[in-house]
Design a protein around this nucleic acid. Structure first.
Lengths: 193, 193
DNA sequence: TTATAATGTAAGTATGTACTTACGCCTCCG
DNA sequence: CGGAGGCGTAAGTACATACTTACATTATAA
């Protein structure tokens, strides 16, 4: 007789909003009041959907991981691996992390004392790495640059991560960012055009 | 007639302690109470030496920059540039950032909304980059890998930065870390042994 | 209609934090 | 020695924050 429980759906609707807030403000500055306002709710209502602010943050990480993975998988399905990798690098260089994922990573890094948050982020990177290694290994032809795929994959991740740091700090402009990802990235991946 | 002012000396003595505390705890968790306890003082006494917690943090960044630069310069003075670069990469891989510099960088990144902190960190990276470019250009012999020095320098910085992130999150072990810095790093720098 | 739980609104609590004030002792220099 | 400032100790303030409680309103399924 009561009204149906729509908690699951509400969580799904709200997480992108929370993600944006965490990305814009960082973990510490994203106060529960700010999160609630961003969602157009009262703090109270958020706490009916998640038990704590940390839970909201962890849910955000999970959500971003899903988004990213879905996108990559789609790219992989649409074109051959080498082409997909190239396009991913290009995109990463162009609108570098507008999802705000990197800001959330930084926020998490400074909260990395918390074991749960650490674990979530480590898991994120491990799966990211595995994915890229798979892509690199599927690449046809001989490996000219001779960097083994696992090492090359970590290097690519490093380039992407630092690019976002650099953007955050206005260290270098978009052209440099793009060259970093496409030139150096392509060399590391063994895609020489 | 009063006693002489030893503020300058006390600041110099305390900064390494503050640096350690910021590195261990992160900016937000390094409360003024915690900083004072680490220094064996009362919060009060810290505030007699610096006007704010932010000032303590900025002083910390400056101090670490000086430390790092001194070390590099020394390496450069002792051996030829190529050898110095190789040794720096090796060292960076070995005791990867035990100074805690990287943790302070992360702490700063999530506080990067603050323009002063952003500026201090951007300045840090810019000077770092200039230094590495100089080293790379001094390298004798033809550049086989053909990555232009500025781009290669950013790539090296990216590798070092991400190595520290990876360490923070226990993403990969020391061997991988060392190979990342020496193999990929050396390839980027054009040092092939 | 009606009981029931979901939802909305508002106020409150306990705690932590950056930063301050007050005060007394100690040390150096004239 | 004497006093002006350096130094140590302690308490306090104003505010922000994560999280809670209380209660009214609404929508549903029987």
């Amino acid at each position: 007789m009561p009204r149906p429980n729509r908690s699951e759906e509400r969580r799904a609707e709200l997480i992108p909003i929370l993600a944006r807030a965490f990305a814009d403000l960082g973990y510490a500055s994203a106060t529960t009041a700010a999160l609630a306002e961003a969602a157009g709710l009262r703090e109270n209502q958020l706490y009916r959907l998640w038990p704590s602010k940390k839970a909201m943050f962890l849910a955000t990480i999970e959500h971003l991981y899903d988004l990213q993975t879905r996108w990559w998988s789609q790219m992989l399905a649409e074109s051959d691996p080498a082409e997909a990798a190239r396009r991913i690098l290009e995109e990463e260089g162009r609108h570098r992390g507008e999802s705000g994922l990197h800001r959330i990573i930084f926020a998490g890094l400074s909260e990395a004392d918390d074991p749960e948050i650490r674990a979530a982020m480590a898991n994120f990177y491990q799966r990211f790495h595995k994915f890229i290694v798979t892509v690199l290994k599927r690449k046809p032809g001989p490996n000219d640059c001779a960097t083994p795929p696992p090492l090359a994959a970590w290097s690519l991740i490093a380039l992407g991560t630092f690019s976002n740091i650099a953007r955050e700090l206005d260290i270098f402009g978009i052209p440099t960012q793009r060259r970093l990802m496409s030139e150096v990235g392509a060399a590391l991946a063994g895609l020489d055009d």
